[in-house]
C-alpha cells in the first residue's frame, strides 16, 4: 500500500511538471511572437522624415535648385555639389546624405547604402537655344511666329545694301526702329508667357539668311529625384 501511495504521489507531480513545462513553453512562444512584432515595427521614422523634408526643401521655390515649385533648373542642377549640402543644410551634419537625379549622383556626403530613400517625380527644365532662319523672298513686310515661347530673342539682321530694315515689332509693339536701317545683332527681351510674333518692316527685298532669329525655348523632362539619408 505504501508503494501504491508513493506511486500516486509521483503521478501527480509528473502531471504538474508537464503542466509547468507546457505553460513555460507557451509563455516562451508568446514572448518570441511579441519580440517579432517589435522587430517588425522597428523602422527609422525620423530618418525617413529627414529624407522627405530634404527632398521637399530641394524642390521648394526658395531652393537654389528649383525654377519654381517641383521644377528643377538644369543649369543649377549641374552646379550643385556635395559642398552645397553641408553648407546650406547645416542641420544635416552627422548624417550621410546622397542626392541623385535619375541615375546620376548630384551630391553625396558619405556612404548611404543602409539609409532611407525618398523618391520624388520632378520636372527638370532647360533653356536651349534654337535658331530659325525664315525663308524670306521678295518685298513686303514679313511676319514670323516663333514656334515655342521664349524669354528673349537674339535677332541678327544682315540685309542687302539696297534694302533697309527700319522697324522690328514683336506682337505689334515696336522693339527696334531706325529710319536709316537696322543691322547686326540685337537682343530683345520678350514675355515668356505668350507666343511671340515678329513683324519686320523692310524697304526693299529680303532673302533667306538676311534675318536670323535665335530664341531660347524651355524644354522640360520629368526625372526622379532621390534623396537618401543615413542617420
Amino acid at each position: 500500500m505504501r508503494g501504491d501511495s508513493s506511486a500516486r504521489g509521483q503521478a501527480n507531480l509528473v502531471a504538474l511538471a508537464v503542466a509547468v513545462v507546457v505553460l513555460t513553453a507557451a509563455l516562451g512562444v508568446g514572448l518570441a511572437i511579441a519580440d517579432g512584432a517589435f522587430g517588425d515595427a522597428e523602422r527609422d521614422a525620423t530618418e525617413r522624415a529627414t529624407a522627405a523634408s530634404l527632398a521637399e526643401t530641394l524642390v521648394h521655390p526658395d531652393s537654389s535648385l528649383s525654377a519654381r515649385h517641383n521644377v528643377l533648373n538644369a543649369s543649377a542642377v549641374a552646379q550643385f555639389e556635395s559642398w552645397d549640402l553641408d553648407n546650406r543644410h547645416t542641420a544635416l551634419e552627422g548624417h550621410d546624405v546622397t542626392v541623385r537625379l535619375d541615375d546620376e549622383t548630384l551630391a553625396t556626403t558619405g556612404d548611404t547604402t543602409a539609409g532611407t530613400t525618398i523618391r520624388r517625380i520632378v520636372l527638370v527644365e532647360e533653356r536651349q537655344s534654337a535658331t530659325r532662319t525664315p525663308g524670306l523672298s521678295g518685298t513686303g513686310n514679313p511676319a514670323v511666329t516663333l514656334p515655342r515661347r521664349t524669354d528673349r530673342v537674339v535677332l541678327t539682321l544682315d540685309p542687302d545694301d539696297d534694302t533697309t530694315v527700319s522697324t522690328v515689332r514683336i506682337d505689334e509693339r515696336v522693339e527696334l526702329h531706325n529710319d536709316s536701317g537696322l543691322a547686326g545683332e540685337h537682343e530683345i527681351a520678350v514675355s515668356p508667357l505668350e507666343t511671340a510674333t515678329l513683324g519686320i518692316e523692310a524697304n526693299g527685298e529680303l532673302s533667306e539668311g538676311d534675318v536670323r532669329i535665335e530664341y531660347f525655348p524651355v524644354r522640360t523632362r520629368s526625372a526622379v529625384l532621390e534623396v537618401t539619408v543615413d542617420a
Binding site: T46, A49, T50, S53, L54, T57, H60, P61, D62, S63, S64, R88, H89, A91, L92, H95
Partner: peptide, 8 residues
C-alpha cells in the same frame, strides 16, 4: 532627436 531641414 531629428534635424530640422526647412527651406532657406
Amino acid at each position: 532627436r531629428a534635424p530640422i531641414v526647412l527651406p532657406r
